[in-house]
């Protein structure tokens, strides 16, 4: 009798262990990052931009949380600028105070192609995006020195894959 009870309990555990209490979920975060190139920038230089996307609030609005995230990737990065002829190349890296820098996108090296297109490197970036603040480092190689400052925008689309309860 005792053996039967144990077997029944085991069977119940097996049957219900696969029953999900969560759903699989995916959503996008769109972020526009503006970077100002100062006047008289030298041909090659780096600009650091602090980004606080408010990840905790975004996750809360989407009924999920950091522990339930499986992966965050970059789905798309587009660059917009008034004059692409000023660039020879633009590369983008991500870093935090605690995480070492990773290159997330490199510009197409084909000369004279406008607009400059960026190729994502597909490195894992979950830890960066879930940090309260991360930094984007823009490495620009300009085609010359320009007397006036100018601005470029990165339109970044992150794909968040997670569970929801």
């Amino acid at each position: 009798m005792k053996k039967t009870a144990i077997l029944l309990s085991l069977l119940t555990v097996l049957l219900f262990s696969c029953k999900k209490e969560y759903k699989f979920f995916a959503f996008y975060i769109n972020e526009i990052v503006s970077v100002n190139f100062p006047a008289n920038s030298v041909a090659g230089f780096e600009i650091l931009t602090d980004i606080a996307i408010g990840i905790d609030k975004i996750l809360q609005e989407n009924n999920t949380e950091k522990d339930l995230i499986q992966e965050i990737t970059i789905e798309e990065i587009n660059l917009s600028a008034a004059d692409f002829s000023r660039f020879n190349s633009v590369d983008l890296s991500i870093l935090t105070d605690n995480l070492a820098e990773e290159t997330i996108a490199k510009s197409d090296t084909t000369e004279g192609v406008e607009p400059v297109s960026l190729n994502e490197t597909n490195v894992p970036i979950t830890d960066f995006i879930t940090a309260p603040v991360f930094k984007l480092k823009t490495k620009g190689v300009l085609s010359g020195s320009y007397a006036q400052e100018f601005k470029i925008n990165f339109n970044i689309r992150f794909l968040v894959k997670s569970y929801v309860k």
Binding site: K19, K23, F24, A26, F27, N62
Partner: peptide, 10 residues
């Protein structure tokens, strides 16, 4: 597609 939720049911 914006958000995707996949819900498993039996």
């Amino acid at each position: 597609v914006n958000k995707v939720t996949v819900d498993l049911t039996f």
